[in-house]
C-alpha cells in the first residue's frame, strides 16, 4: 500500500485538525500535535510515516524531531501498517487474572496471527496494550473505538465473525 501522502493535510483532515487547534490558546499550536497525529493516522489506514509526521510538523510550526518524539512516545501511534481491525488486547493484571492471556493465545490460533503481526489478508492485527481502564469487564479488548468486555472464547469469536 503506497498511497501518495503529498499534501495530506487538506480538506477534511485539515478541518478536523483546525478544530483541535482552536481548543488551545492561539500561541500554542503545538498542543494540537497529538490530535493531529491521531487524525492523520486514522485517515492513513491506521499508521504514520516520516513524511506524514513531517507534514504535521510543518503545519503546526514544530521541529520535525519534536513531532517524532511525540509520535514514538505514545503507544497509540503506529509506525507500521496494521490490520483493518486492530485488536488492542489488554495485558494487565485484572484481565490477566480472569484468563486474558489464555484467551489471547486462542485468538492468535484462530486468526493465525501472532501478537504484533498482521494477518495475511490484512484484515486483523493484534496489539498488546496495558490496562484499558475497564478492568471490571475483564478480560477485555478494544477494536477501533469500541470496548468489548467480559470476553469468552465464544463471544470473542462471534464478534470476529461479525466483522466485515
Amino acid at each position: 500500500m503506497s498511497s501518495s501522502t503529498e499534501n495530506f493535510i487538506q480538506g477534511e483532515v485539515k478541518e478536523r485538525i483546525d478544530r483541535w487547534i482552536a481548543e488551545y490558546p492561539e500561541d500554542q499550536r503545538q498542543s494540537a500535535c497529538m490530535p493531529a497525529l491521531r487524525i492523520v493516522q486514522e485517515c492513513h489506514d491506521g499508521y504514520l510515516t516520516t513524511d506524514l509526521m513531517d507534514q504535521v510538523a510543518e503545519y503546526l510550526g514544530m521541529a520535525p524531531i519534536a513531532v517524532y518524539e511525540v509520535a514514538t512516545f505514545y503507544g497509540n501511534y503506529n509506525h507500521q501498517p496494521v490490520g483493518k481491525y486492530q485488536i488492542n488486547w489488554c495485558n494487565s493484571i485484572s484481565c490477566y487474572l480472569r484468563g486474558g492471556e489464555e484467551l489471547r493465545e486462542k485468538l492468535e490460533e484462530k486468526l493465525g496471527v501472532k501478537t504484533g503481526e498482521v494477518s495475511a489478508d490484512g484484515k486483523f492485527s493484534i496489539k498488546k496494550v496495558e490496562c484499558l481502564g475497564a478492568c471490571g469487564g475483564a478480560p477485555i479488548c478494544k477494536i477501533g473505538k469500541d470496548y468489548h468486555e467480559n470476553l469468552t472464547e465464544e463471544s470473542l469469536f462471534k464478534l470476529l465473525d461479525e466483522l466485515e
Binding site: E23, M34, R38, G75, E130, C131
Partner: peptide
C-alpha cells in the same frame, strides 16, 4: 471547557 485526549501513556 476543553478536552485533551491522551494517546496511550500511563
Amino acid at each position: 471547557l476543553h478536552v485533551h485526549l491522551g494517546a496511550g501513556a500511563y
